[in-house]
Design a protein around this nucleic acid. Structure first.
Lengths: 340, 340
DNA sequence: CATATGATCGAAACCGATTTCGATTATTGC
DNA sequence: GCAATAATCGAAATCGGTTTCGATCATATG
């Protein structure tokens, strides 16, 4: 039978308020009655209704998860999924559950702020690789605590986490440099991709930092982050007749596409061209050559996002940002350096 | 300013009940007042509180998502994630949002039934590759509509979807057969994995169906579904000195591990041994040889799960199960058959 | 022993919606 | 023009909790 607080109160012979106080650890209730009530709660398997509680307290212990940008793409993207996984875990430890807004055309599709109010979420995390939409800006500027993942939120109750893109690029250039490469190329996505742009900017600056010269001819772009784009970009580079000795791709799939294009033209990786990808997706370990890449600390990004959001919700911080250090994963696509 | 139904009523000069009726498409309100109220709702951006609504109606329009089995593993598993993605999309169209229960030790960790009551979910989807836990059985037998993904739920208000494992195996054996192979082996996971067992059972039955004899020597098992297990299982098979001509692996990673072991011993795929994997993960297209595999229709599984759950919630069905047809994806790891 | 103090508990208002049912007004038929 | 009927609207109870504040009782103090 479905229980509620009134029935528990009756069974225990106390008032509703007393039961409520026991559930919320108030101090003005004797040990004796507390034990009696808790026993009954145990027996009946009573669980308080979240909606009634939320209605009364205006706290839901719910975190909204928003995939901004293209419909549902991010949900199957390994990077975001792993960050989210870690975030979910940490948020669970902190006592929160996650609610996913479906962004269908059904109703109020883009109106994230309304939906946050609707569900009384205590805060939300916004996952996006794209540029800011107006609906996200509305949320960012609201009183609802928000954390962006790879998305720069700057509102009063907002913060964000992302990998240090300058460090990513810097580690790539350093690795190339130590292997003796001086002619560095880049394969990115389209110009409206924040992530690709940040990686390219970091790369350019790292190249200068190592005293190398950048050749714009060696910087090419595909239509997205997927393999065919890498293949196409690399092909155009090959046809230009002017090849760099080493190439950094803004994603592993772009890198894999580049490898395929090179192999097809009889060029060898890493002997003729060295390649470094980015993200460390699962496939990197199973290709030939296996792919040297940059791994972002997805677990740490998730944990940091959770803690920042928690602090924001409990007014223990003013927002801000955290940047996480990436790691270079050395495999075969650049050679060992020792064999030279 | 935060709105509620009372303020809207005052602004429009009507009663609270009238506003509520307008929000819920009752017929006993005139066009004139309806328009007036809707205008005010539009201006103020009012959104009704879900908790108040749930409290009053006992419907939440929320679907609980439960990852049973090992902590969080499934969230990063490409198969489940894609099914879930499709499910989420379809459920969104039907007007539902998703809530993910965090299964941390925090509180009531395994008590899924309580948590469903707590959140007043209208139904839930349970994702699992493992065997049934008691907490899941409790849910299955409850009055709460449940759909299992790759999990046989048999309760009165339950149902499940899964791929047709016999058809999977049957397509594999047929492909091997048409390529001329008569000596078929298998690499699976542990004995407590329902999925691996079902695939093996289907395989055995399909071998018999094609009039072939099964050799238990060629059936080996790893500790899980991952690549190292495939490598280990294949290695032991190689060391036994008695190799089949074709091997079906219960997952793509097991298949990839087997390929690595074969290559290391100087054996060629597919010339010496043909391999078929299962799941069609992303990496299959980037390995060498690219991996022939069985692709499950994840999108359709998600859509079916959503519709079954919807019908269950609205008492339009009595539960049951749906089985989805898999597809053979031919790549290089079995050869073309034409080149023979 | 009278009083002050602290411990324990409950009555009632409130959160923001839904829904029933009766009241009021407008419309129709004759 | 009047009764019957339909259209329109609102008062109030309800859902299941929280929280304030006052009441009651036991204990400590002088």
């Amino acid at each position: 039978m479905q229980m509620n607080i009134k029935k528990i109160a009756e069974m225990a012979g106390v008032s509703v308020s007393t039961v409520s106080k026991i559930m919320n650890n108030y101090s003005d209730v004797s040990e004796k009655t507390k034990r009696r009530v808790l026993d009954i709660i145990e027996q009946t398997g009573y669980t308080p209704s979240s909606s009634a509680k939320t209605l009364a307290t205006k706290k839901s212990n719910l975190i909204g998860v928003i995939f901004a940008g293209e419909l549902n793409v991010e949900f199957t993207h390994p990077f975001f999924v792993e960050v989210l996984n870690s975030f979910k875990k940490q948020m669970g430890v902190l006592g929160y559950d996650l609610i996913f807004f479906s962004n269908e055309k059904f109703i109020n599709s883009g109106d994230y702020y309304s939906r946050c109010l609707h569900f009384h979420v205590d805060g939300c995390v916004i996952i996006s690789g794209q540029q800011m939409e107006p609906a996200i800006q509305e949320l960012d500027r609201s009183h609802i605590p928000c954390i962006g993942v790879d998305l720069e939120l700057t509102g009063k109750k907002s913060g964000y986490v992302m990998s240090d893109n300058y460090q990513i690029a810097s580690k790539v250039v350093e690795h190339f440099y130590l292997l003796g490469h001086r002619e560095l190329g880049f394969i990115g996505s389209t110009a409206d991709s924040d992530i690709s742009n940040r990686r390219e900017a970091g790369y350019v600056s790292a190249i200068a930092g190592f005293g190398l010269v950048m050749n714009p001819q060696w910087f090419v772009h595909g239509d997205d982050f997927f393999e065919p784009s890498g293949y196409a970009a690399m092909s155009s580079l090959i046809h230009s007749g002017d090849l760099p000795k080493a190439i950094f791709a803004a994603s592993d799939l772009l890198a894999l596409g580049a490898v395929r294009a090179l192999k097809e033209q009889g060029l060898r990786v890493p002997e003729d061209v060295a390649i470094i990808g980015c993200d460390d997706i699962e496939a990197c370990q199973y290709t030939s050559p296996t792919l040297t890449t940059i791994r972002q600390n997805k677990e740490r990004l998730g944990v940091l996002a959770a803690h920042m959001l928690f602090d924001l919700i409990n007014n223990q911080s003013e927002g801000g940002s955290f940047v996480v250090e990436p790691a270079l994963i050395v495999r075969e696509s650049c050679g060992s350096g020792l064999s030279r």
